[in-house]
């Protein structure tokens, strides 16, 4: 349902992606690992249209994103990007909740304004999402009154409110206190178990091993290795993968 073909992206003179390809099937949970700066986040942001790219193409359920380089996307390209965004929910490292709105308002804003859902229906859906992430009763709170873990769960609910067909998680637990990491991961685990197509960039190796159908190892803008988690974590083929894993697993 998501195909990335020969993706190329530059930052100024530096070429980050020299032709990255990936096929994601419906219901698959794919975990992206690799050192900081290896391109995991940028890869997810390209799929969500938050970053433009210079070559190749990205197809999400039949909608095609074209390379526009450093230029502003044309009106037509911008329409395609918005279509893709409606199919993919994005969760950020720093939650990016809207601090001037309550939890409930955060969740219903886009369904009402973008999809044109009636407010009562949006509120009903939002309440069921809050129940699912165990935050019922927090509708009227502002993001600033919540813990990091609670905020990230609201951010997940906000993305789910748009009824996406795939979810992209960009290091969802990296900014959290250790004691709240678990609650966020269990929400993500629930989504994967329900069959949501999921791409997760993370440093949580235990979690990766547990939920991933497929693990992708990024290094210096390349996918150096990919495969089922037990294979990657137990018998990594590449020297660079072994080095990376020995560094993070020792921690």
């Amino acid at each position: 349902m998501i195909s990335v073909r020969d993706l190329q992206k530059n930052f100024g003179d530096v070429q980050l992606f020299k032709g990255v390809s990936l096929e994601v099937e419906k219901g698959q949970a794919i975990v992206l690992i690799g050192p900081s700066g290896s391109g995991k986040s940028t890869f997810l942001r390209c799929i969500n249209g938050l970053e433009t790219f210079h070559g190749g193409e990205i197809i999400v359920e039949g909608t095609v994103l074209h390379p526009v380089g450093g230029n502003r996307p044309s009106r037509q390209d911008a329409d395609e990007i918005r279509k893709v965004r409606r199919k993919t929910g994005m969760v950020f490292q720093h939650f990016n909740l809207f601090p001037h709105l309550t939890v409930l308002e955060n969740i219903i804003l886009a369904p009402v304004e973008v999809l044109g859902v009636k407010k009562e229906d949006a509120v009903r859906h939002a309440r069921s999402l809050l129940e699912r992430i165990n935050l019922n009763g927090k509708e009227g709170s502002h993001p600033g009154q919540l813990s990091g873990g609670q905020q990230q769960r609201v951010a997940i609910a906000r993305a789910l409110a748009m009824k996406p067909e795939a979810m992209l998680f960009d290091e969802p637990t990296s900014a959290l206190d250790p004691e709240t990491v678990g609650e966020v991961l269990s929400v993500i685990r629930g989504l994967v178990e329900e069959g949501m197509t999921t791409l997760i960039a993370t440093h949580e190796m235990g979690f990766a091993r547990e939920v991933a159908h497929k693990v992708i190892v990024f290094d210096e803008g390349e996918i150096i290795e990919s495969g089922p988690p037990e294979e990657i974590f137990t018998y990594p083929k590449k020297e660079r993968t072994r080095n990376f894993l020995s560094r993070v697993l020792r921690l």
């Binding site: 969500n48 965004r85 929910g89 990016n96 804003l109 886009a110 304004e113 973008v114 951010a155 748009m162």
Partner: peptide, 21 residues
């Protein structure tokens, strides 16, 4: 913060809508 605009865009909002809301 830049992330506010990104979050709004990622929810399918146009720049104008994101700016306003």
């Amino acid at each position: 913060p830049q992330g506010q605009m990104e979050a709004a865009l990622s929810l399918g909002m146009t720049r104008g809508l994101a700016l306003r809301k």
